[in-house]
Every structure is written in structure tokens, then in C-alpha cells.
Design a binder for these strands. Structure first.
Length: 571
RNA sequence: GCGGCUGUAGCUCAGCGGAUUAGAGCAUCGGUCUACGGAACCGAGGGUCGGGGGUUCGAAUCCCUCCAGCCGCACCA
């Protein structure tokens, strides 16, 4: 069974397609009725008939009998109002349904999501926030609808900087280096390597020689490299735990993983006749890409020095994900500046036959996190801001707010709650605006308990839970859903829209649509509280109102969960 | 120069597969109620939807053009 919206579309489409095959009712929610269908005008146009005439015919078709009534309005809109009995039965069906009407994808798809991607031996900073948070929300939402998610944390664990990093590790001594890395002091380590490299030509020579050893597979060098990787991955895991992100060390499949596949990428492209030599570099020139002189733009897979560019790695990753992991969908949660590069990689992969048209492949691009000055978010001294420090500050502020409010929690619980609120604040602020936009990082606004914020939604949920706790045991199955007034009916309609909100968020890889839905739900709740006292009501009315509260609470919890945000019982 | 993204109320943002009076939050102003959790609710003011053209009965939404900001445009990933 589909959502209420889907049922309406399906039934309306019968009339529409009888008139014009392939036409769409263009069904939307409406302020004037429960739904409105805007597709009549287009149909009337192609038929050359007056729109109102066509609308009247569709209204009289009986397609919505037993479900809703249709009223013709304005130039030819169909205003649709659900029959009370149908509405009630739709709501009753949600009571025993853990997923609240959300149907599982059948058969499940395999979705590979590439996100987070920090660099080994480098601090995680705000630049990684968006990829991590958006990617994790998409992963959770995909799992919620039954898809199999394979997370790929494409960490930067290879390349010329590793010569320098390994030499620095040796200079520090293994023990000291490990100590520095294990406490997450990656900035100090990296900057130490950097300044040694900048200061000493001898160090530079050693670094270059070390790169050669690393690439040549020298066992001792590989061992040292592994130390860097393992320590970093352990640190990343701590950050993910603090953020409540589902990535694990198993999801780390770094650049180095593809090393053995790179030669194959080049030789296969060559065999396909796609490879061209340009200034000594081996390139593919996908159509439609030009450089600043209007000449074809190359995707460089092998550099003049025989080294492989990251395009080769990305192509190998596509092959692995499609060929070995059998992905039905590839999502790359990567910043907008990479748009051209990824578009070229995808284009080449398609041409090479490594990325069939049946596989959805999308660059889930996002804008930057800005500081108060609307420039890239940096510290006053111009350095990047550590992700953990950002989170710690948010936790501290949330904690203080809880203290000031005087909640009767023990300190450990208060800590935990503050952590949940802080995560909610930061994640929701990131997820709730349209991905492609830049947004200004403003803890005050994010942590506010009013307005369109994560904490507000958590609060809306906690408030419902409080009511439900006080109500005690109630047989919600007995709810009749008579929906006696506008606020309760409006709330009910929102509850029925949950599956559509999830579908829409997944379709556009757009978590903000889910945010918008949840915030709208929370707002309808406040209107509902005003008009419908719950605990003071009696009999069937009380049961119905409690049932609405229960459905709303569960919808909020499920929705927040899909975003990676906890829904605490009390606040 | 070419390409991409962004430009909607004082501020932060939805809406952009065209459709009935352009929505929300914050802020401002004015109200409500011994509160099922006042971290509340109700109401008001506030917008040439960056500018200009075009398509259409109808455009914030589609097309063209211009302006502004950010980003990308061959061997660092």
C-alpha cells in the first residue's frame, strides 16, 4: 500500500490518462483543501477544451469514490478533500506500524555512499563537517527504507605528503609520534612535518626517497605508513563517536586501496581507444569539457612522471563499486568545487562502460561553512577550526543552558543530554538548508530552543513523550479519528505525509526536505495543543488525541533518527 | 574568457517538474492564559522574489540577457 498521496495520484491518474496518455495530475498539498490537482490546465490545453469543462468531467469520473471528494475551483483546479472514513482508516493503519506507513524498497538497492573523507595525519576540521553529516543522514535514511548501504570513507592515505610524514615520524621516534597521534594532536604532527620539510633540503631529499620506497612496497616503510593510517583511523573513530556518526573503521577504504587497480584503469582505457597522449601525460578527453582557451579539457589518469593522478583512483573506485560491490546507486557527498572533476570522471566511466546507465550516479554537492564575516569559517588567526573543538563548545553551551534551567538530572545525565542537544544543533543547522547553499555557522542560532532548530524538534518530541508517559496505558487501537477540528485534522494530514517526505528527501539526496517536514509537523503540534487538551479530555476524544500524540512522537523520533539526531525522552 | 553554484521580508532560510491572496523562523510591535512542560500560544507590520526582456490565459519557478558574490578551468589530492 502506498501513502495517502500515492493512492490519490494513482486514482486521479486514471482520469487524466484516459484524456491524455502520460499526463500527470500534478497533485500538491493545498491550503484550500487537503490536496489540489493542478494538472487539468495542461490537459485541457492539449485537448483544446475549456479547463473548467475538463475539470468537471474528472470530478464526475468517480475515481476518488470512497476516498475523497473533488471540487472544481478557479480556472480549473481540483480541490480534494479526503472522506473522513478514509482518513480515519489511513491513520488507524499507522497505529501498529513501526515505520508509520513507510514501505520498504523491494527489492532493496545497494547504495554506495562516499562521504567524510578526512586525510590521514591531518586534523578533521569544519571542512569535513558537511560531508560527514549529510552523508550520514543519507545513509541512515536509505537504510530506513530498506536499502543496503555501503559506506565508503575515501580517506586521503596516499601520495607525496607521506614521504614527509613518515620521515617526521622517524625523527620524532615511533613512540612519541604514536603518543602525539593517539591523543588526536594531528595538527601538531602535520605541522611539524610541514615545517621540517620547508626548513631543510636534506629532509626534502629524505622525504622524496621515502615516497619512492613507499610506492615500491618496502616492508619497513609500509609498516611505518601503517602506523600513521591506524592511528589516524582510530582518531577519526573517536570523532565519529562524538558526533554520533555511523562510520566505522571497516568503512575506511582509502585511496591506497585502489593502487593495484590503477594500471588496469590505464591499460583498459587504452584498449578502449579512449586514451590520448598529451604533453607526455595520458589523458581522456570527455566531450563537452573545455579549458580557459576553449580547448578540450583532459582528465589526466597518468602523469608525465608515470605517477597516477587522483582521476585514476576515482575511476578505479567506480569500477570497484559497480563491478565488485554491485552498486545500484553511487552517491558522492563531496564539496561543490569538485563538480567538474567528478562530472569528468563520471563521463569517462560511462564511456568506458564501467558505469551503466542503469546505475544512478550523483555528486551530492554542498556549499561551504562560513564564519560570521561570511568568509570560509576560520579561527581568528586564520587556521581551520577543529571539528572536536566546535562540538565541545556546543556541548558546553548546551550544558550551561541545562544548568541555568535547573533540570533535576544528575550530572552524568545532564552531560549526555547536553551532548545530544549539541549534536542536534550542529547537525540540524547543516542539514536544514538546501545543500548547495553556503551557510553561516552561528552557534547561538543553532542552539536556540525556539524556531527552526534541532533542539526545538527534540523538545517537541520530549513534550509529547511527557504527555504520553502521564497518560499511562491506553489502547490506541481504539482511536476513531473523528478529527473534530481543523488543528487535529491538519496534524493528521501531516502524519500521513511522512512517507512522501522521506521519498522526496531521498529522491533529491536532500535531507533538508525531511527537516522542513519535521518542523512543519512540530508547528502543527502547537496549534493542536491549543485546540485539543489531551490529558484533560475524556473517553474516545482522549484516546484519539493520545493516538495523534503517539503517532506524532514516533514520526519525530523516526525522522530525527533518519537525520542522525537523537530524540531524548526528557529535556 | 568558459563553466558551475548562489542572489526571495531588517536577519537566517523554505518554495523553483508554472497555477487560486509569495511562506516560515528570528528580530520588532501588540495581545492571551494560575500553564496536559511558559523553553508556550494568538495577532500585526514588513517583500518591485538581484535588474531587464521573452514564452504563457498565468512565471519566484521555464528561456535569453545583464549585474553581484563564491568556486572550478592539465599532471596536489
Amino acid at each position: 500500500m502506498g501513502s495517502t498521496y500515492e493512492i490519490l495520484v494513482e486514482r486521479l491518474a486514471r482520469s487524466f490518462q484516459r484524456l491524455v496518455p502520460g499526463s500527470d495530475p500534478v497533485l500538491r498539498t493545498s491550503e484550500r483543501a487537503d490536496f489540489q490537482a493542478n494538472g487539468v490546465m495542461a490537459v485541457a490545453k492539449s485537448l483544446g477544451r475549456p479547463p473548467r469543462d475538463v475539470a468537471t468531467e474528472i470530478a464526475a469520473s468517480g475515481d476518488l469514490d470512497g476516498v475523497a471528494t473533488i471540487e472544481v475551483a478557479g480556472p480549473g483546479f481540483l480541490n480534494i478533500t479526503l472522506d473522513p472514513a478514509f482518513l480515519a482508516s489511513q491513520l488507524r493503519a499507522l497505529i501498529g506500524d513501526e515505520r508509520l506507513g513507510l514501505t520498504l524498497v523491494a527489492p532493496p538497492k545497494t547504495v554506495v555512499i562516499d562521504y567524510s573523507a578526512p586525510n590521514v595525519a591531518k586534523e578533521m576540521h569544519v571542512g569535513h563537517l558537511r560531508s560527514t553529516v549529510i552523508g550520514d543522514a543519507l545513509a541512515r535514511t536509505e537504510r530506513l527504507v530498506g536499502n543496503q548501504v555501503i559506506a565508503r570513507n575515501h580517506v586521503g592515505d596516499w601520495g607525496t605528503p607521506f614521504g614527509m610524514l613518515i620521515e617526521h615520524l622517524l625523527d620524532l621516534g615511533e613512540d612519541r609520534a604514536i603518543a602525539e597521534l593517539s591523543i588526536g594532536d594531528l595538527n601538531t604532527f602535520y605541522q611539524g612535518a610541514r615545517s621540517a620539510f620547508d626548513a631543510s633540503e636534506a629532509f626534502q631529499r629524505r622525504s622524496r626517497a621515502r615516497v619512492v620506497l613507499l610506492q615500491g612496497g618496502d616492508p619497513e616503510t609500509r609498516r611505518l605508513w601503517h602506523i600513521l593510517v591506524d592511528q589516524s583511523v582510530a582518531y577519526f573513530s573517536q570523532v565519529y563517536a562524538k558526533l554520533d556518526v555511523t562510520l566505522t573503521p571497516d568503512d575506511v577504504v582509502g585511496e591506497s586501496f585502489y593502487n593495484d587497480a590503477l594500471e588496469g584503469v590505464v591499460s583498459d582505457l587504452d584498449a578502449l581507444g579512449l586514451l590520448e597522449d598529451s604533453d607526455g601525460a595520458r589523458c581522456v578527453f570527455p566531450p563537452g569539457f573545455t579549458n580557459r582557451d576553449g580547448e578540450p579539457l583532459p582528465l589526466i589518469v597518468q602523469k608525465r612522471d608515470e605517477g597516477f593522478g587522483y582521476a585514476a583512483t576515482d575511476l578505479a573506485a567506480v569500477r570497484d563499486r559497480v563491478g565488485n560491490l554491485h552498486a545500484d546507486e553511487l552517491l558522492y557527498v563531496v564539496g561543490a568545487p569538485q563538480a567538474q572533476h567528478l562530472a569528468m570522471v563520471f563521463a569517462v566511466a560511462r564511456r568506458a562502460g564501467w558505469l551503466p546507465d542503469t546505475v544512478r550516479c550523483e555528486h551530492v554537492a554542498f556549499g561551504s561553512v562560513l564564519g560570521p564575516d561570511r568568509k570560509m569559517y576560520k579561527t581568528r588567526s586564520g587556521e581551520t577550526v577543529k571539528l572536536v573543538e566546535l562540538l565541545d563548545e556546543a556541548i558546553e553551551r548546551a550544558y550551561e543552558a541545562l544548568v541555568a534551567r535547573g533540570t533535576d538530572l544528575d550530572d552524568a545525565s545532564r552531560r549526555e543530554l547536553a551532548t545530544q542537544i549539541a549534536r542536534a544543533a550542529i547537525k540540524y543547522a547543516d542539514l536544514s538548508t538546501e545543500r548547495q547553499r553556503d551557510y553561516v555557522f552561528d552557534l547561538n542560532r543553532m542552539l536556540a530552543f525556539e524556531g527552526d532548530t534541532g533542539p526545538y524538534l527534540q523538545y517537541a518530541h520530549a513534550r509529547l513523550r511527557s504527555i504520553l508517559r502521564r497518560a499511562g496505558e491506553v489502547e490506541l487501537e481504539r482511536a476513531t479519528f473523528s478529527l473534530e477540528n481543523t488543528p487535529s485534522r491538519s496534524l493528521a494530514l501531516a502524519l500521513l505525509g511522512w512517507p512522501d517526505a522521506v521519498a522526496s528527501a531521498l529522491e533529491g539526496a536532500a535531507p533538508h526536505r525531511l527537516c522542513t517536514y519535521l518542523f512543519d509537523l512540530a508547528q502543527r503540534l502547537t496549534a493542536f495543543y491549543e485546540a485539543c487538551p489531551v490529558l484533560n479530555a475524556e473517553g474516545a476524544v482522549r484516546v484519539e488525541r493520545l493516538a495523534l500524540c503517539d503517532l506524532a512522537a514516533r514520526t519525530l523520533a523516526l525522522g530525527l533518527g533518519a537525520l542522525g539526531i537523537a530524540a531524548p525522552e526528557r529535556m
